[in-house]
Design a protein around this nucleic acid. Structure first.
Lengths: 301, 301
DNA sequence: TTTGCTGTTTTGTCCTAGACAAACTAGGGA
DNA sequence: TCCCTAGTTTGTCTAGGACAAAACAGCAAA
């Protein structure tokens, strides 16, 4: 009776590490070192998969694979919760009550969480709700996940519930029909959409006409959609999970396809480090997004 | 001045054809035959990308690549709209007004579509809305897309707007807190969630406690979530886009991780052809889902 | 005519091993 | 302290070979 084994495709699915990378690591570092089936194909035991997941998580925090793979399991475990020491736990004013929300998620109390969020929305109003509750909360959940305090499925539950709240709130906003007209989406391989929903909400609140296309639009389709909808702006969001190397290429290609009259705005944690230039604008924060919108209106008046 | 070129990673992203497949086709069939950059790496011109997209679309309809690649562009174009001839355009009763909804999407009239859908929801009630409007409409949009009558971005817009409507409607349903407790999600590489939302709505209407985890949960996380939430049932959805070959392996693995006390239910177009057995149940339709729920309650009473 | 079995073709995925460029690190000079 | 350059790390690409699962075609029997 063998314990669970996974073929290379399953490991790719579960860890997000490409087959090429898995084979390369094996060649270079000797880890992971899977067993082989009768046909010579790799079979990863569950233990190696767990370690790979941990390594991936630490890599997303900025560590480099060479060091991580050389480290022992204990060293890795110690590496994880370095956040609380190096970074302050977030401004006190906005943290007000966020811990309580986090606790609700941690207890898997979905109805309680939704209710608490609804109350905050009613109390704060949409804009402050997004800026003072949703944004910092998302940040904290991300950090908690990086530190291993949150399970993946807890983060998923949080994301799903929060997406619902935001969409619902957006639906109740008066339908914007002033300019500019903004197409919102993400490129293929980028499935995180929370940030995009936040800006959509803020833009909609300002009366802009938002056209949400969901996630993972092929570049050519983004361009076609923008033209068909006569959009003024295409807004994309990149999370930290999106492979850095690909971003500039993606932007370059999209910019080349898109009519020059249509602006390209980029936001999200993954876009940090890029600078506004060469035909696209980087939104560094939600405030920046609102500022950019105001500025766009001023200029195009 | 060269027209747009794409490297192999970009083509993979945009077409959904893996790098291995792209290289294999080139070797076997001589198409696609990309140019090379100074470093010997493949550069696909836009024309080949278009043809690949068309071929992929036809493959998803059941055609085989060997034939498609051998065919000329004209032959391919003729192949596409074969649906209307071979399949009836859907029962007349339920098609009532669906054309109108399709037309609204085709005109990119998002507000109009949302309003029309809201009206239907109010008129039909949730259950009939899902079964008589959303389900057949999704079907028709899928067919329209396969026939090339809908652009990809139009399908995305439809999906996004409909997701919002469903989520909003679900949120207004009285929170179910009767058994069974059902975790709803999709596996990695499966991002289509509309079908899952429909059953979630129906289950919630029956008072079941639904825990939506969004899409693309790693298998191990699905299992952890199910245990943590003390779920009775895990419900997964597979679209036709999900690679057939992988399904049985995925189910087998998940079934192995999941406590035997937790049932595994599978639905969606992609699960057709699989049969209820070996520890999982296949839901062949929305009616079947409701029936299964009733049956579960009867047995576990 | 239809059903069921069997052999053949098609097709995708996996394998090894080598090469190179982009990203990152570290060292030295202004 | 800051910037530039050289070195190291890391991911992705390349090529061609192998094999198994799925799809198809042909034939025999009901």
């Amino acid at each position: 009776m063998n314990t669970l084994h996974f073929n290379i495709a399953a490991v790719e699915r579960d860890t997000g590490l490409s087959k090429d990378v898995l084979r390369m690591w094996e060649r270079r570092y000797g880890f992971p070192l899977p067993e082989r089936d009768a046909n010579g194909e790799r079979l990863y035991p569950a233990a190696q998969l767990d370690r790979l997941r941990l390594i991936k998580r630490l890599m997303d925090q900025g560590h480099r694979p060479g060091k991580l793979i050389a480290a022992s399991n204990d060293e890795l475990a110690q590496l994880a919760p370095r956040r609380s020491a190096s970074r302050p736990p977030a401004p006190a004013e906005s943290a007000e009550g966020l811990d309580e929300l986090l606790a609700l998620i941690k207890q898997h109390d979905a109805p309680g969480y939704q209710q608490a969020m609804q109350q905050r929305l009613a109390r704060q109003g949409f804009q402050r709700f997004v800026q003072d509750t949703v944004a910092p909360l998302t940040q904290q959940v991300g950090e908690a996940w990086e530190d291993g305090r949150f399970e993946v499925f807890e983060e998923h539950l949080f994301t799903e519930l929060t997406k619902r709240l935001l969409r619902q709130a957006i639906a109740t906003l008066p339908g914007g029909n002033r300019s500019p007209r903004i197409v919102l989406t993400t490129v293929p391989d980028e499935q995180h959409v929370l940030g995009l929903l936040m800006v959509e909400g803020l833009f909609a609140l300002e009366g802009a006409e938002c056209i949400p296309l969901g996630t993972q639009m092929p570049l050519l389709e983004i361009s076609r959609a923008a033209v068909a909808h006569q959009a003024d702006i295409v807004a994309l969001s990149f999370s930290t999970a999106f492979p850095r190397r690909q971003i500039s290429g993606v932007l370059e290609q999209l910019r080349q396809m898109l009519p020059t009259s249509i602006a390209l705005w980029i936001g999200g944690q993954g876009s940090a480090g890029h600078s506004t230039s060469e035909g696209f604008r980087v939104l560094h924060s939600l405030d920046d997004a609102l500022y950019s919108l105001a500025k766009w209106r001023e200029i195009s008046k």
